[in-house]
């Protein structure tokens, strides 16, 4: 039953992805000034939204782990797996944002990169969560979960500060380029393509998140089992 549900959900996700792709490339009308290059938005913006969503999930996992690690160790392990899965999937989506963004910018602005508020914030967000994953890889032993949770909370606090800093910075020195927001005078067909892609990428992200969570839970259980066996031998 559970397997069936997962297969159905995966099939639905694939349908959404195909539909989103079709909408973005074939259905949505050509944008009047940017033409074809504007279609990058249908992948870029939903990925950015997903990245923020999964980083938020990671933060929930970190806080949940610290709150429950003393009283409910079993729950804490689940939260920890959630924090790790959220951070990893978030980094994947954030990488997509950071790769597709400059490709669009090169054609639309004529430059690959600028230290604009949103660009800088996204880049620093990516750096913070990569450092989080590095810590999880480098630090050994059982304390790594606690340390990672603490770093996850620090990283999350940093994000609004980074955003404010960059907004002030750029307000003092207005830059010639603007982020053409997706909601500024968008036609209904464009909006439809946009919404299909949001649904598709979030569904895909949740699928991968669940998979990553499952794998991490399995490895946690294997570790616990090993520790138990070592105790039994003594």
């Amino acid at each position: 039953m559970k397997k069936l549900a997962i297969s159905l959900y995966a099939a639905f996700t694939v349908y959404l992805l195909i539909r989103g792709f079709h909408q973005a490339i074939f259905v949505a009308p050509d944008e009047s000034t940017m033409h074809e290059i504007q279609r990058i938005f249908y992948y870029h913006v939903p990925s950015a939204m997903s990245a923020f969503l999964f980083f938020a999930i990671s933060l929930v996992g970190s806080i949940g782990f610290l709150a429950s690690r003393r009283n409910q160790p079993e729950f804490a392990q689940r939260f920890d797996a959630l924090a790790l899965a959220g951070a990893e999937v978030g980094v994947v989506f954030c990488s997509v944002v950071l790769v597709t963004g400059p490709i669009w910018g090169r054609r639309a602005w004529g430059i690959w990169w600028t230290w604009d508020a949103r660009l800088t914030t996204t880049l620093i967000l990516w750096l913070i969560y990569v450092s989080y994953l590095l810590l999880r890889r480098f630090a050994a032993g059982p304390q790594v979960q606690t340390l990672a949770a603490v770093l996850g909370i620090f990283g999350a606090i940093d994000v609004p500060i980074v955003y404010m800093a960059n907004r002030w910075w750029r307000t003092q020195h207005p830059s010639p380029v603007f982020f053409g927001g997706a909601d500024s005078g968008i036609s209904p067909k464009m909006l439809a393509a946009f919404l299909w892609n949001i649904a598709a990428w979030i569904a895909w992200g949740v699928l991968i998140l669940g998979f990553r969570y499952y794998v991490e839970r399995q490895s946690q259980k294997a570790l616990a089992h090993e520790a138990q066996q070592a105790l039994d031998h003594v």
Partner: peptide
Amino acid sequence: FAALSIRSRNRELLLPLILFPIFMPALL
């Protein structure tokens, strides 16, 4: 972060890697 990375392998390497991204807004 030095206290955080103290019990990891190669801690000397880890400290700048986790400190610099968090420190960025202050550096700016």
